[in-house]
């Protein structure tokens, strides 16, 4: 099967520091992959660089066998929740509708059908009751669900999520993971920048372990071992153990 995503020799820097160093991997369709690594490992930067939101120093990225600009409609991106101003005067439905702007067309107004699609997406995340609620009044978990609904409404084939479970309540975490599993069951591919080592084995069938370069990548059961964890987190984890253990 054709890989959904191919990354070869990707290099990127953030200010003076090299953040991605010769990153190479391939993602098969229908997988649910966690991207993990210590802080500053380049996880967010990896997503942003692949999506051309961050400049690339070298390397090649292919989505569905072609360049990003030809595959934009097939890729859904859920950025970190902290990347926007939630004080902006708009409601949840409006935010989800933004996912459809590409389809609505520039300079045209959203139609009834678009609103229905948006409402449906909110419903999938259990948020249809909050459609008209101001986003500034939503909790962290609710905001995250709205973001995810916005990605869903794009009906993409590959979803890239940046720390969707950070700072959300247990119910939201459950709802999000359920949605991601549903997507996988439907043949979609999902990659998630994930922060919690404890839940990797429960949630994800594949894992990409990143510390500026790819330490390991493959099925969770095979490659998520003490050894690879130690190599990815280096002194970081050992320091943590000393404190807690």
């Amino acid at each position: 099967m054709e890989p959904v995503l191919q990354v070869r020799g990707l290099h990127a820097a953030y200010r003076k520091n090299k953040v991605l160093d010769d990153v190479t991997f391939e993602v098969a369709p229908g997988t649910l992959t966690a991207i993990i690594g210590p802080n500053g490992a380049g996880k967010s930067t990896l997503l942003k660089t692949m999506l051309e939101l961050h400049p690339r120093l070298a390397g090649e990225v292919r989505f569905f066998g072609t360049a990003y600009r030809n595959a934009k409609l097939k890729v859904g991106y859920v950025p970190q929740r902290g990347s926007v101003d939630w004080d902006f005067p708009t409601d949840a439905l409006d935010v989800v509708l933004m996912g459809l702007y590409g389809r609505i067309g520039w300079l045209k107004r959203p139609g009834r059908r678009h609103r229905e699609l948006a409402l449906e997406a909110l419903g999938k995340m259990g948020m249809e009751g909050f459609a008209k609620r101001q986003i500034s009044e939503l909790s962290g978990g609710q905001q995250q669900r709205v973001f995810l609904a916005r990605a869903l409404v794009q009906d993409a084939d590959l979803y890239l999520l940046d720390e969707p479970l950070a700072g959300v309540d247990a119910a939201t975490e459950r709802a999000i993971m359920e949605m991601l599993r549903t997507l996988r069951a439907a043949g979609k591919t999902v990659m998630v920048v994930h922060h919690d080592l404890q839940t990797v084995e429960d949630y994800f069938d594949h894992v990409l372990m990143l510390n500026r370069t790819v330490i390991a990548h493959g099925p969770t059961t095979e490659i998520f071992t003490q050894d690879t964890i130690a190599r990815t987190y280096g002194g970081w984890l050992r320091r943590k153990e000393r404190v807690t253990g």
Partner: peptide, 9 residues
């Protein structure tokens, strides 16, 4: 690339 390297300076 070039932009990043000169940004701080």
């Amino acid at each position: 690339m070039f932009k990043q390297r000169i940004s701080k300076s």
